[in-house]
Design a protein around this nucleic acid. Structure first.
Lengths: 82, 82
DNA sequence: GTGTGACTTATAGTCCGTG
DNA sequence: GCACGGACTATAAGTCACA
């Protein structure tokens, strides 16, 4: 179905993942490794091409040392919880 | 893969959905209709049997008139964002 | 180090029921 | 109104070769 809202959400996730990853000086490969996912898969998420599931979301959050809801929040401030 | 973290997340989602739904006096059917999902699917989500995608998460949030990150936050207090 | 299209396999999600 | 199952279809997961 992919409504406009869903598109925005994927986009938000993409931006958050990319920002957090670069914030920690990781490559897509490094994040993929840390999250237990694949390089190209992480890449396609960052390009908001994927409609990821809770499971992948969780893996991603783990790899980025953050919380799942952080990846889906529009966050300008304290994003990195030490 | 379904790590323990992913299990917890599904469980949290299940609780939040059920609580918010009942809070608004909706049946699973009513929510399914409002979210554009299927009756049995909503039921299985509330039983934390499903690893839902962003798209469904968005639809669910829409049907519950809330935000996606609310469904994934451990929320004791102000759940309804004004 | 990243983008992209193609591809296979796993599972998300629908729809039919039953108690 | 809800839990749960079986069978099905659509799509996410996961991997690759190459730009």
């Amino acid at each position: 179905m992919v409504t406009g809202e869903a598109k925005q959400l994927r986009d938000l996730l993409a931006r958050n993942v990319r920002r957090l990853r670069r914030d920690q000086n990781m490559s897509q490969e490094a994040l993929a490794d840390a999250a237990g996912l694949h390089r190209t898969y992480v890449g396609s998420i960052e390009r908001s091409e994927r409609n990821v599931s809770l499971d992948s979301l969780c893996a991603l959050a783990h790899g980025l040392s953050t919380e799942v809801w952080c990846l889906l929040s529009d966050s300008k401030e304290g994003q990195s919880p030490q």
